[in-house]
Design a protein around this nucleic acid. Structure first.
Lengths: 274, 274
DNA sequence: AAGTGGTCTAGACCACGAT
DNA sequence: TCGTGGTCTAGACCACTTT
Protein backbone atom coordinates (compact mmCIF):
# COMPACT_ATOMS: atom_id res chain seq x y z
CA UNK A 1 0.00 0.00 0.00
CA UNK A 2 1.78 3.06 -1.21
CA UNK A 3 -1.09 5.45 -0.75
CA UNK A 4 -1.18 6.51 2.88
CA UNK A 5 -4.14 8.00 4.73
CA UNK A 6 -2.11 11.14 5.41
CA UNK A 7 -1.34 11.88 1.77
CA UNK A 8 -4.08 9.84 0.16
CA UNK A 9 -3.07 10.09 -3.44
CA UNK A 10 0.69 10.49 -3.61
CA UNK A 11 0.55 11.54 -7.19
CA UNK A 12 2.41 14.18 -9.11
CA UNK A 13 0.40 17.41 -8.86
CA UNK A 14 -0.48 17.38 -12.51
CA UNK A 15 -2.36 20.28 -14.01
CA UNK A 16 -6.08 19.60 -13.83
CA UNK A 17 -6.31 21.42 -17.15
CA UNK A 18 -4.67 18.45 -18.85
CA UNK A 19 -7.00 17.32 -21.59
CA UNK A 20 -6.05 13.64 -21.51
CA UNK A 21 -6.09 12.60 -17.85
CA UNK A 22 -3.02 10.51 -16.97
CA UNK A 23 -5.31 8.26 -15.00
CA UNK A 24 -3.76 4.85 -15.29
CA UNK A 25 -0.23 6.18 -15.11
CA UNK A 26 -1.17 7.81 -11.84
CA UNK A 27 -2.19 4.45 -10.49
CA UNK A 28 1.06 2.97 -11.67
CA UNK A 29 3.16 5.73 -10.16
CA UNK A 30 1.17 5.66 -6.95
CA UNK A 31 1.84 1.98 -6.73
CA UNK A 32 5.50 2.66 -7.37
CA UNK A 33 7.53 0.99 -10.03
CA UNK A 34 6.37 -2.58 -9.48
CA UNK A 35 9.24 -4.82 -8.51
CA UNK A 36 9.51 -7.91 -10.69
CA UNK A 37 7.01 -10.27 -9.15
CA UNK A 38 5.14 -7.56 -7.28
CA UNK A 39 1.45 -7.60 -8.18
CA UNK A 40 0.00 -4.61 -9.96
CA UNK A 41 -2.55 -2.94 -7.75
CA UNK A 42 -5.08 -0.66 -9.43
CA UNK A 43 -6.05 2.61 -7.80
CA UNK A 44 -9.52 1.49 -6.80
CA UNK A 45 -8.05 -1.42 -4.88
CA UNK A 46 -5.78 0.89 -2.95
CA UNK A 47 -8.77 3.07 -2.16
CA UNK A 48 -10.60 -0.06 -1.06
CA UNK A 49 -7.74 -0.86 1.28
CA UNK A 50 -7.92 2.61 2.81
CA UNK A 51 -11.64 2.26 3.39
CA UNK A 52 -11.14 -1.12 5.06
CA UNK A 53 -8.49 0.43 7.29
CA UNK A 54 -10.95 3.10 8.35
CA UNK A 55 -13.58 0.45 9.05
CA UNK A 56 -11.06 -1.60 10.98
CA UNK A 57 -10.01 1.24 13.23
CA UNK A 58 -13.64 2.12 13.85
CA UNK A 59 -13.69 5.48 12.09
CA UNK A 60 -17.23 4.60 11.02
CA UNK A 61 -19.20 2.34 13.33
CA UNK A 62 -21.46 -0.55 12.28
CA UNK A 63 -24.86 0.79 11.28
CA UNK A 64 -23.52 4.25 10.55
CA UNK A 65 -23.22 5.85 7.13
CA UNK A 66 -19.79 6.37 5.62
CA UNK A 67 -19.06 9.62 3.75
CA UNK A 68 -20.67 10.05 0.35
CA UNK A 69 -18.89 8.92 -2.77
CA UNK A 70 -18.09 12.50 -3.73
CA UNK A 71 -16.67 13.22 -0.28
CA UNK A 72 -14.44 10.19 -0.44
CA UNK A 73 -13.44 11.03 -4.00
CA UNK A 74 -12.22 14.47 -2.97
CA UNK A 75 -10.58 13.11 0.17
CA UNK A 76 -8.61 10.57 -1.84
CA UNK A 77 -8.16 12.87 -4.83
CA UNK A 78 -9.65 10.42 -7.30
CA UNK A 79 -12.80 10.43 -9.41
CA UNK A 80 -16.16 9.33 -8.09
CA UNK A 81 -16.06 6.34 -10.41
CA UNK A 82 -12.93 5.00 -8.78
CA UNK A 83 -14.42 5.32 -5.29
CA UNK A 84 -17.56 3.70 -6.61
CA UNK A 85 -15.68 0.67 -7.82
CA UNK A 86 -13.96 0.28 -4.45
CA UNK A 87 -17.29 0.51 -2.63
CA UNK A 88 -18.87 -1.88 -5.13
CA UNK A 89 -16.42 -4.58 -4.11
CA UNK A 90 -16.87 -3.90 -0.42
CA UNK A 91 -20.63 -4.08 -0.83
CA UNK A 92 -20.26 -7.36 -2.73
CA UNK A 93 -18.25 -8.70 0.21
CA UNK A 94 -21.00 -7.58 2.57
CA UNK A 95 -18.79 -5.18 4.49
CA UNK A 96 -20.85 -2.23 3.31
CA UNK A 97 -24.49 -1.80 2.43
CA UNK A 98 -25.65 0.64 -0.22
CA UNK A 99 -29.05 2.30 0.03
CA UNK A 100 -30.05 4.44 -2.90
CA UNK A 101 -30.88 7.98 -1.93
CA UNK A 102 -29.66 7.52 1.63
CA UNK A 103 -26.01 6.60 1.60
CA UNK A 104 -23.62 3.73 2.15
CA UNK A 105 -23.67 2.04 5.54
CA UNK A 106 -21.38 -0.18 7.56
CA UNK A 107 -22.92 -3.64 7.80
CA UNK A 108 -23.98 -4.77 11.26
CA UNK A 109 -24.97 -8.09 12.82
CA UNK A 110 -27.99 -6.37 14.33
CA UNK A 111 -29.68 -6.71 10.95
CA UNK A 112 -31.49 -9.93 10.13
CA UNK A 113 -30.06 -10.01 6.66
CA UNK A 114 -26.55 -10.23 7.99
CA UNK A 115 -27.50 -12.55 10.82
CA UNK A 116 -29.00 -15.23 8.63
CA UNK A 117 -25.83 -15.44 6.59
CA UNK A 118 -24.12 -16.85 9.65
CA UNK A 119 -27.11 -18.70 11.09
CA UNK A 120 -27.75 -21.57 8.70
CA UNK A 121 -29.89 -23.85 10.81
CA UNK A 122 -33.44 -23.81 9.53
CA UNK A 123 -36.57 -25.68 10.65
CA UNK A 124 -37.69 -28.32 8.16
CA UNK A 125 -41.16 -26.78 8.04
CA UNK A 126 -42.19 -23.29 8.88
CA UNK A 127 -40.28 -20.17 9.63
CA UNK A 128 -37.16 -19.55 11.66
CA UNK A 129 -37.82 -19.76 15.39
CA UNK A 130 -36.25 -17.60 18.03
CA UNK A 131 -33.54 -19.50 19.82
CA UNK A 132 -32.88 -19.14 23.51
CA UNK A 133 -29.54 -19.96 25.03
CA UNK A 134 -28.44 -21.29 28.39
CA UNK A 135 -24.82 -20.72 29.32
CA UNK A 136 -23.02 -23.63 30.95
CA UNK A 137 -19.65 -22.03 31.22
CA UNK A 138 -17.71 -18.83 30.63
CA UNK A 139 -14.18 -18.83 31.91
CA UNK A 140 -10.68 -17.71 31.10
CA UNK A 141 -7.89 -20.17 30.48
CA UNK A 142 -4.59 -20.54 28.70
CA UNK A 143 -5.20 -21.32 25.06
CA UNK A 144 -4.97 -25.03 24.27
CA UNK A 145 -2.44 -25.54 21.53
CA UNK A 146 -5.00 -26.19 18.80
CA UNK A 147 -6.93 -23.07 19.75
CA UNK A 148 -3.76 -20.99 19.91
CA UNK A 149 -2.81 -22.21 16.48
CA UNK A 150 -6.08 -21.41 14.76
CA UNK A 151 -6.53 -18.06 16.54
CA UNK A 152 -2.95 -17.10 15.81
CA UNK A 153 -2.05 -16.66 19.49
CA UNK A 154 1.11 -17.38 21.46
CA UNK A 155 1.23 -20.47 23.61
CA UNK A 156 0.52 -18.87 26.97
CA UNK A 157 -2.09 -16.33 25.81
CA UNK A 158 -5.45 -16.39 27.54
CA UNK A 159 -8.71 -17.24 25.83
CA UNK A 160 -12.33 -17.10 26.90
CA UNK A 161 -14.11 -20.42 26.75
CA UNK A 162 -17.88 -20.35 26.48
CA UNK A 163 -20.19 -23.34 26.50
CA UNK A 164 -23.89 -23.08 25.92
CA UNK A 165 -27.01 -24.98 24.95
CA UNK A 166 -29.41 -23.46 22.43
CA UNK A 167 -33.07 -24.39 22.43
CA UNK A 168 -35.70 -23.89 19.79
CA UNK A 169 -39.23 -23.82 21.20
CA UNK A 170 -37.75 -24.85 24.55
CA UNK A 171 -36.35 -28.04 23.03
CA UNK A 172 -32.56 -28.27 23.36
CA UNK A 173 -31.06 -28.66 19.90
CA UNK A 174 -27.53 -27.26 19.89
CA UNK A 175 -24.42 -27.49 22.04
CA UNK A 176 -21.74 -24.94 21.34
CA UNK A 177 -18.24 -24.42 22.60
CA UNK A 178 -16.63 -21.09 21.72
CA UNK A 179 -13.09 -19.81 22.12
CA UNK A 180 -12.27 -16.10 21.91
CA UNK A 181 -8.95 -14.28 22.29
CA UNK A 182 -8.85 -13.04 25.90
CA UNK A 183 -7.10 -9.79 25.02
CA UNK A 184 -9.91 -8.63 22.76
CA UNK A 185 -12.71 -9.73 25.06
CA UNK A 186 -11.79 -8.29 28.45
CA UNK A 187 -14.78 -8.07 30.74
CA UNK A 188 -16.78 -10.74 28.98
CA UNK A 189 -18.58 -12.69 31.70
CA UNK A 190 -21.41 -15.15 31.95
CA UNK A 191 -23.61 -12.34 33.28
CA UNK A 192 -22.87 -10.07 30.31
CA UNK A 193 -23.75 -12.93 28.01
CA UNK A 194 -26.92 -13.89 29.86
CA UNK A 195 -28.37 -10.40 30.11
CA UNK A 196 -27.74 -9.59 26.48
CA UNK A 197 -30.62 -10.18 24.12
CA UNK A 198 -29.94 -10.50 20.44
CA UNK A 199 -27.32 -12.12 18.27
CA UNK A 200 -24.01 -12.97 19.90
CA UNK A 201 -22.04 -11.41 17.06
CA UNK A 202 -24.03 -8.25 17.71
CA UNK A 203 -22.74 -8.23 21.26
CA UNK A 204 -19.17 -8.77 20.10
CA UNK A 205 -19.57 -5.90 17.70
CA UNK A 206 -21.08 -3.28 20.00
CA UNK A 207 -19.47 -4.26 23.29
CA UNK A 208 -16.01 -5.29 22.15
CA UNK A 209 -15.58 -3.64 18.77
CA UNK A 210 -14.95 -6.96 17.05
CA UNK A 211 -16.85 -7.42 13.80
CA UNK A 212 -17.17 -10.88 12.26
CA UNK A 213 -16.85 -10.73 8.50
CA UNK A 214 -16.32 -14.21 7.22
CA UNK A 215 -16.13 -17.78 8.51
CA UNK A 216 -14.80 -21.13 7.37
CA UNK A 217 -16.62 -24.27 8.43
CA UNK A 218 -15.93 -27.98 8.50
CA UNK A 219 -19.02 -30.14 8.74
CA UNK A 220 -19.28 -33.77 9.82
CA UNK A 221 -21.74 -36.31 11.15
CA UNK A 222 -20.74 -37.71 14.54
CA UNK A 223 -22.23 -39.95 17.20
CA UNK A 224 -23.38 -38.21 20.37
CA UNK A 225 -21.10 -38.74 23.35
CA UNK A 226 -22.84 -39.58 26.63
CA UNK A 227 -22.52 -36.08 28.10
CA UNK A 228 -23.74 -34.40 24.92
CA UNK A 229 -26.57 -36.87 24.55
CA UNK A 230 -27.73 -36.04 28.06
CA UNK A 231 -27.77 -32.30 27.36
CA UNK A 232 -29.76 -32.79 24.17
CA UNK A 233 -31.99 -35.46 25.71
CA UNK A 234 -31.23 -38.07 23.06
CA UNK A 235 -29.75 -41.55 23.22
CA UNK A 236 -26.00 -41.87 23.32
CA UNK A 237 -24.68 -42.51 19.84
CA UNK A 238 -27.45 -40.55 18.14
CA UNK A 239 -26.24 -38.86 14.93
CA UNK A 240 -25.37 -35.17 15.35
CA UNK A 241 -24.15 -32.58 12.90
CA UNK A 242 -20.79 -31.24 14.01
CA UNK A 243 -19.67 -27.87 12.73
CA UNK A 244 -16.23 -26.45 13.38
CA UNK A 245 -16.12 -22.77 12.57
CA UNK A 246 -13.29 -20.27 12.43
CA UNK A 247 -14.47 -16.67 12.12
CA UNK A 248 -12.46 -13.78 10.76
CA UNK A 249 -12.62 -10.04 11.09
CA UNK A 250 -11.15 -7.35 8.82
CA UNK A 251 -7.93 -8.23 7.02
CA UNK A 252 -8.61 -11.93 7.58
CA UNK A 253 -7.59 -12.01 11.21
CA UNK A 254 -9.11 -15.00 13.04
CA UNK A 255 -11.10 -14.01 16.14
CA UNK A 256 -13.30 -16.95 17.02
CA UNK A 257 -13.15 -20.70 17.06
CA UNK A 258 -16.43 -22.52 17.56
CA UNK A 259 -17.51 -26.11 17.69
CA UNK A 260 -21.22 -26.85 17.49
CA UNK A 261 -23.23 -30.06 17.77
CA UNK A 262 -26.63 -29.90 16.13
CA UNK A 263 -29.65 -32.13 16.45
CA UNK A 264 -31.04 -32.32 12.94
CA UNK A 265 -34.22 -34.31 13.35
CA UNK A 266 -36.38 -31.22 12.84
CA UNK A 267 -33.81 -28.78 11.55
CA UNK A 268 -31.29 -28.75 8.74
CA UNK A 269 -28.30 -26.75 7.62
CA UNK A 270 -29.12 -24.87 4.44
CA UNK A 271 -26.50 -24.00 1.89
CA UNK A 272 -26.36 -22.57 -1.60
CA UNK A 273 -23.67 -23.45 -4.10
CA UNK A 274 -22.86 -21.29 -7.09
CA UNK B 1 -37.85 -7.84 -21.01
CA UNK B 2 -38.70 -5.21 -23.55
CA UNK B 3 -35.54 -5.54 -25.59
CA UNK B 4 -35.94 -8.50 -27.89
CA UNK B 5 -33.17 -10.43 -29.54
CA UNK B 6 -34.58 -9.54 -32.95
CA UNK B 7 -34.42 -5.81 -32.37
CA UNK B 8 -31.92 -5.73 -29.58
CA UNK B 9 -32.15 -2.11 -28.58
CA UNK B 10 -35.65 -0.93 -29.39
CA UNK B 11 -34.72 2.66 -28.89
CA UNK B 12 -35.57 5.78 -30.83
CA UNK B 13 -32.91 6.13 -33.52
CA UNK B 14 -31.49 9.24 -31.97
CA UNK B 15 -28.78 11.17 -33.75
CA UNK B 16 -25.39 9.94 -32.62
CA UNK B 17 -24.28 13.55 -32.98
CA UNK B 18 -26.27 14.46 -29.89
CA UNK B 19 -23.89 16.05 -27.42
CA UNK B 20 -25.67 14.93 -24.28
CA UNK B 21 -26.47 11.26 -24.79
CA UNK B 22 -30.00 10.43 -23.66
CA UNK B 23 -28.64 7.32 -22.06
CA UNK B 24 -30.79 6.75 -19.04
CA UNK B 25 -33.93 7.90 -20.79
CA UNK B 26 -33.19 5.31 -23.43
CA UNK B 27 -33.20 2.66 -20.77
CA UNK B 28 -36.44 3.98 -19.41
CA UNK B 29 -38.09 4.11 -22.81
CA UNK B 30 -36.73 0.72 -23.71
CA UNK B 31 -38.24 -0.62 -20.54
CA UNK B 32 -41.47 1.11 -21.41
CA UNK B 33 -43.32 3.41 -19.06
CA UNK B 34 -43.13 1.33 -15.95
CA UNK B 35 -46.54 0.36 -14.69
CA UNK B 36 -47.08 1.20 -11.05
CA UNK B 37 -45.46 -1.69 -9.24
CA UNK B 38 -43.41 -2.78 -12.22
CA UNK B 39 -39.71 -2.86 -11.33
CA UNK B 40 -37.38 -0.52 -13.13
CA UNK B 41 -34.87 -2.50 -15.14
CA UNK B 42 -31.68 -0.75 -16.19
CA UNK B 43 -30.26 -1.25 -19.65
CA UNK B 44 -27.31 -3.34 -18.53
CA UNK B 45 -29.66 -5.80 -16.87
CA UNK B 46 -31.64 -6.19 -20.07
CA UNK B 47 -28.38 -6.81 -21.91
CA UNK B 48 -27.49 -9.34 -19.26
CA UNK B 49 -30.78 -11.10 -19.89
CA UNK B 50 -30.06 -11.26 -23.61
CA UNK B 51 -26.65 -12.76 -22.97
CA UNK B 52 -28.14 -15.37 -20.66
CA UNK B 53 -30.67 -16.24 -23.35
CA UNK B 54 -27.86 -16.78 -25.82
CA UNK B 55 -26.03 -18.97 -23.32
CA UNK B 56 -29.21 -20.89 -22.61
CA UNK B 57 -29.93 -21.66 -26.23
CA UNK B 58 -26.32 -22.70 -26.73
CA UNK B 59 -25.27 -19.91 -29.06
CA UNK B 60 -21.88 -20.07 -27.32
CA UNK B 61 -20.85 -23.43 -25.90
CA UNK B 62 -19.16 -24.05 -22.53
CA UNK B 63 -15.45 -23.41 -22.82
CA UNK B 64 -15.84 -21.19 -25.88
CA UNK B 65 -15.25 -17.45 -25.99
CA UNK B 66 -18.21 -15.14 -26.38
CA UNK B 67 -17.90 -12.10 -28.68
CA UNK B 68 -15.73 -9.24 -27.47
CA UNK B 69 -17.25 -6.42 -25.46
CA UNK B 70 -17.05 -4.08 -28.43
CA UNK B 71 -18.77 -6.62 -30.68
CA UNK B 72 -21.58 -7.08 -28.20
CA UNK B 73 -21.83 -3.33 -27.69
CA UNK B 74 -22.36 -2.74 -31.39
CA UNK B 75 -24.73 -5.71 -31.64
CA UNK B 76 -26.90 -4.37 -28.85
CA UNK B 77 -26.38 -0.72 -29.81
CA UNK B 78 -25.11 0.30 -26.40
CA UNK B 79 -21.77 1.48 -25.10
CA UNK B 80 -18.97 -0.86 -24.11
CA UNK B 81 -19.41 0.20 -20.50
CA UNK B 82 -22.96 -1.08 -20.42
CA UNK B 83 -21.99 -4.45 -21.86
CA UNK B 84 -19.11 -4.54 -19.42
CA UNK B 85 -21.43 -4.12 -16.46
CA UNK B 86 -23.69 -6.92 -17.71
CA UNK B 87 -20.70 -9.23 -18.15
CA UNK B 88 -19.35 -8.19 -14.75
CA UNK B 89 -22.47 -9.53 -13.09
CA UNK B 90 -22.43 -12.74 -15.11
CA UNK B 91 -18.79 -13.28 -14.22
CA UNK B 92 -19.60 -12.67 -10.55
CA UNK B 93 -22.28 -15.35 -10.82
CA UNK B 94 -19.73 -17.71 -12.37
CA UNK B 95 -21.61 -18.07 -15.63
CA UNK B 96 -18.79 -16.41 -17.53
CA UNK B 97 -15.06 -16.28 -17.02
CA UNK B 98 -12.99 -13.26 -17.99
CA UNK B 99 -9.40 -13.65 -19.09
CA UNK B 100 -7.51 -10.46 -19.70
CA UNK B 101 -6.01 -10.28 -23.13
CA UNK B 102 -7.85 -13.35 -24.32
CA UNK B 103 -11.54 -12.81 -24.04
CA UNK B 104 -14.60 -13.82 -22.05
CA UNK B 105 -15.44 -17.52 -21.86
CA UNK B 106 -18.45 -19.62 -21.01
CA UNK B 107 -17.79 -21.44 -17.73
CA UNK B 108 -17.53 -25.22 -17.93
CA UNK B 109 -17.57 -28.07 -15.42
CA UNK B 110 -14.49 -29.46 -17.11
CA UNK B 111 -12.42 -26.91 -15.20
CA UNK B 112 -11.32 -27.74 -11.69
CA UNK B 113 -12.19 -24.29 -10.43
CA UNK B 114 -15.82 -24.82 -11.31
CA UNK B 115 -15.84 -28.42 -10.19
CA UNK B 116 -14.67 -27.76 -6.66
CA UNK B 117 -17.45 -25.27 -6.13
CA UNK B 118 -19.88 -28.17 -6.34
CA UNK B 119 -17.65 -30.82 -4.79
CA UNK B 120 -17.34 -29.85 -1.14
CA UNK B 121 -16.12 -33.07 0.38
CA UNK B 122 -12.48 -32.73 1.41
CA UNK B 123 -10.07 -35.12 3.12
CA UNK B 124 -9.23 -34.07 6.68
CA UNK B 125 -5.53 -34.19 5.87
CA UNK B 126 -3.87 -33.92 2.55
CA UNK B 127 -5.09 -33.02 -0.88
CA UNK B 128 -8.24 -33.92 -2.73
CA UNK B 129 -8.23 -37.49 -3.93
CA UNK B 130 -9.64 -38.77 -7.16
CA UNK B 131 -12.96 -40.48 -6.57
CA UNK B 132 -14.06 -43.53 -8.48
CA UNK B 133 -17.70 -44.42 -8.86
CA UNK B 134 -19.58 -47.70 -9.16
CA UNK B 135 -23.07 -47.51 -10.60
CA UNK B 136 -25.71 -49.62 -8.91
CA UNK B 137 -28.62 -48.52 -10.98
CA UNK B 138 -29.68 -46.40 -13.92
CA UNK B 139 -33.28 -46.74 -14.96
CA UNK B 140 -36.26 -44.81 -16.17
CA UNK B 141 -39.42 -44.50 -14.14
CA UNK B 142 -42.39 -42.25 -13.57
CA UNK B 143 -41.44 -39.40 -11.32
CA UNK B 144 -42.40 -39.99 -7.70
CA UNK B 145 -44.56 -37.11 -6.52
CA UNK B 146 -41.82 -35.47 -4.46
CA UNK B 147 -39.38 -35.64 -7.36
CA UNK B 148 -41.98 -34.31 -9.79
CA UNK B 149 -42.66 -31.43 -7.46
CA UNK B 150 -39.08 -30.33 -7.00
CA UNK B 151 -38.13 -30.82 -10.66
CA UNK B 152 -41.24 -28.99 -11.79
CA UNK B 153 -42.56 -31.96 -13.80
CA UNK B 154 -46.06 -33.27 -14.44
CA UNK B 155 -47.23 -36.29 -12.52
CA UNK B 156 -46.66 -38.92 -15.18
CA UNK B 157 -43.40 -37.57 -16.62
CA UNK B 158 -40.44 -39.90 -16.74
CA UNK B 159 -37.25 -39.43 -14.79
CA UNK B 160 -33.90 -41.17 -14.80
CA UNK B 161 -32.91 -42.65 -11.49
CA UNK B 162 -29.23 -43.23 -10.87
CA UNK B 163 -27.71 -44.86 -7.82
CA UNK B 164 -23.98 -45.09 -7.27
CA UNK B 165 -21.27 -45.60 -4.68
CA UNK B 166 -18.24 -43.33 -4.67
CA UNK B 167 -14.93 -44.50 -3.29
CA UNK B 168 -11.88 -42.52 -2.28
CA UNK B 169 -8.70 -44.58 -2.38
CA UNK B 170 -10.85 -47.65 -3.02
CA UNK B 171 -12.72 -47.11 0.26
CA UNK B 172 -16.47 -46.63 -0.24
CA UNK B 173 -17.46 -43.28 1.29
CA UNK B 174 -20.53 -41.98 -0.52
CA UNK B 175 -23.89 -43.29 -1.65
CA UNK B 176 -25.78 -41.13 -4.08
CA UNK B 177 -29.23 -41.28 -5.58
CA UNK B 178 -29.88 -38.92 -8.46
CA UNK B 179 -33.06 -38.00 -10.33
CA UNK B 180 -32.97 -36.28 -13.71
CA UNK B 181 -35.81 -35.21 -16.01
CA UNK B 182 -36.16 -38.00 -18.59
CA UNK B 183 -36.96 -35.62 -21.43
CA UNK B 184 -33.65 -33.80 -21.17
CA UNK B 185 -31.57 -36.93 -20.67
CA UNK B 186 -32.63 -39.25 -23.47
CA UNK B 187 -30.04 -41.91 -24.14
CA UNK B 188 -28.48 -41.76 -20.70
CA UNK B 189 -27.60 -45.33 -19.77
CA UNK B 190 -25.46 -47.11 -17.20
CA UNK B 191 -22.92 -47.77 -19.95
CA UNK B 192 -22.68 -44.11 -20.93
CA UNK B 193 -22.12 -43.26 -17.28
CA UNK B 194 -19.57 -46.00 -16.67
CA UNK B 195 -17.43 -45.30 -19.71
CA UNK B 196 -17.30 -41.58 -19.07
CA UNK B 197 -14.31 -40.32 -17.15
CA UNK B 198 -14.49 -36.95 -15.49
CA UNK B 199 -17.05 -34.96 -13.58
CA UNK B 200 -20.67 -35.99 -13.97
CA UNK B 201 -21.77 -32.41 -14.55
CA UNK B 202 -19.23 -32.31 -17.34
CA UNK B 203 -20.99 -35.23 -18.98
CA UNK B 204 -24.38 -33.56 -18.57
CA UNK B 205 -22.99 -30.44 -20.14
CA UNK B 206 -21.28 -31.91 -23.20
CA UNK B 207 -23.54 -34.89 -23.87
CA UNK B 208 -26.94 -33.44 -23.03
CA UNK B 209 -26.47 -29.68 -23.19
CA UNK B 210 -27.58 -29.21 -19.63
CA UNK B 211 -25.38 -26.85 -17.63
CA UNK B 212 -25.61 -26.78 -13.84
CA UNK B 213 -25.32 -23.26 -12.51
CA UNK B 214 -26.43 -23.23 -8.92
CA UNK B 215 -27.62 -25.65 -6.25
CA UNK B 216 -29.48 -25.54 -2.96
CA UNK B 217 -28.61 -28.05 -0.29
CA UNK B 218 -30.14 -29.29 2.95
CA UNK B 219 -27.68 -31.00 5.26
CA UNK B 220 -28.42 -33.34 8.14
CA UNK B 221 -26.85 -36.02 10.28
CA UNK B 222 -28.64 -39.36 10.04
CA UNK B 223 -28.13 -42.93 11.22
CA UNK B 224 -27.10 -45.41 8.56
CA UNK B 225 -29.89 -47.79 7.51
CA UNK B 226 -28.92 -51.46 7.21
CA UNK B 227 -28.64 -51.43 3.43
CA UNK B 228 -26.60 -48.24 3.35
CA UNK B 229 -24.37 -49.45 6.17
CA UNK B 230 -23.60 -52.58 4.19
CA UNK B 231 -22.60 -50.60 1.10
CA UNK B 232 -20.31 -48.36 3.11
CA UNK B 233 -19.02 -51.23 5.24
CA UNK B 234 -19.95 -49.60 8.53
CA UNK B 235 -22.20 -50.66 11.40
CA UNK B 236 -25.90 -50.00 11.08
CA UNK B 237 -26.77 -46.78 12.87
CA UNK B 238 -23.41 -45.18 12.18
CA UNK B 239 -23.69 -41.40 11.75
CA UNK B 240 -23.75 -40.24 8.13
CA UNK B 241 -23.94 -36.81 6.57
CA UNK B 242 -27.03 -36.56 4.41
CA UNK B 243 -27.15 -33.92 1.71
CA UNK B 244 -30.24 -33.23 -0.36
CA UNK B 245 -29.38 -31.15 -3.37
CA UNK B 246 -31.50 -29.47 -6.00
CA UNK B 247 -29.51 -28.15 -8.94
CA UNK B 248 -30.58 -25.41 -11.31
CA UNK B 249 -29.64 -24.40 -14.82
CA UNK B 250 -30.08 -21.04 -16.56
CA UNK B 251 -33.10 -19.00 -15.51
CA UNK B 252 -33.38 -21.00 -12.28
CA UNK B 253 -34.94 -24.07 -13.85
CA UNK B 254 -34.43 -27.16 -11.63
CA UNK B 255 -32.75 -30.04 -13.47
CA UNK B 256 -31.44 -32.41 -10.84
CA UNK B 257 -32.45 -33.77 -7.48
CA UNK B 258 -29.79 -35.63 -5.55
CA UNK B 259 -29.59 -37.29 -2.19
CA UNK B 260 -26.15 -38.22 -0.87
CA UNK B 261 -25.00 -40.10 2.21
CA UNK B 262 -21.43 -39.34 3.24
CA UNK B 263 -19.10 -41.11 5.58
CA UNK B 264 -17.27 -38.32 7.38
CA UNK B 265 -14.72 -40.14 9.47
CA UNK B 266 -11.86 -39.06 7.23
CA UNK B 267 -13.59 -36.42 5.14
CA UNK B 268 -15.56 -33.29 5.86
CA UNK B 269 -17.82 -30.88 4.06
CA UNK B 270 -16.12 -27.51 3.75
CA UNK B 271 -18.05 -24.29 3.59
CA UNK B 272 -17.36 -20.58 3.67
CA UNK B 273 -19.76 -18.03 5.05
CA UNK B 274 -19.60 -14.37 4.16
C1' DA C 1 -35.01 21.53 -3.72
C1' DA C 2 -31.04 19.26 -2.36
C1' DG C 3 -28.28 15.25 -1.62
C1' DT C 4 -27.38 10.40 -2.21
C1' DG C 5 -26.46 6.38 -4.89
C1' DG C 6 -27.49 4.31 -9.83
C1' DT C 7 -27.06 4.33 -14.86
C1' DC C 8 -25.08 5.50 -19.23
C1' DT C 9 -21.83 7.32 -22.29
C1' DA C 10 -17.30 8.52 -24.48
C1' DG C 11 -12.59 8.52 -24.65
C1' DA C 12 -7.85 7.67 -23.22
C1' DC C 13 -4.60 4.65 -21.73
C1' DC C 14 -2.63 0.19 -19.39
C1' DA C 15 -1.83 -4.93 -18.92
C1' DC C 16 -1.93 -9.17 -21.07
C1' DG C 17 -1.79 -12.68 -24.66
C1' DA C 18 -1.36 -14.14 -29.35
C1' DT C 19 0.73 -13.25 -33.81
C1' DT D 1 1.64 -5.13 -33.59
C1' DC D 2 -2.96 -5.97 -32.69
C1' DG D 3 -7.00 -7.30 -30.15
C1' DT D 4 -8.72 -8.40 -25.68
C1' DG D 5 -10.20 -7.16 -21.14
C1' DG D 6 -8.95 -3.67 -17.17
C1' DT D 7 -8.60 0.99 -15.26
C1' DC D 8 -9.57 5.81 -14.86
C1' DT D 9 -11.80 9.98 -15.77
C1' DA D 10 -15.55 13.42 -16.67
C1' DG D 11 -20.04 14.64 -17.30
C1' DA D 12 -24.99 14.09 -17.88
C1' DC D 13 -29.03 12.45 -16.20
C1' DC D 14 -32.24 9.14 -13.44
C1' DA D 15 -34.24 7.16 -9.06
C1' DC D 16 -34.82 7.50 -4.33
C1' DT D 17 -34.96 9.83 0.20
C1' DT D 18 -35.12 13.64 3.14
C1' DT D 19 -35.69 18.51 4.07
Amino acid sequence: MSITPATPAARPASEPATAAPPAASVAASAAGTPAPGAAFSPLYRQIKGLIVQSLDRGEWKPGEAIPSELDLASRFKVSQGTVRKAIDELAAENLLLRRQGKGTFVATHHEDRVRFRFLRMTPDDGEPVQSDSRFLECRRMRAPSEVARTLDLRGGDSVVQIRRVLSFDSVPAVIEEIFLPGAQFRGLTAERLAEYTGPMYGLFETEFGVRMIRADEKIRAVAAADSDAALLKVAAGAPLLQIERVSFTYEDRPVEMRRGLYLTTHYHYRNSLS
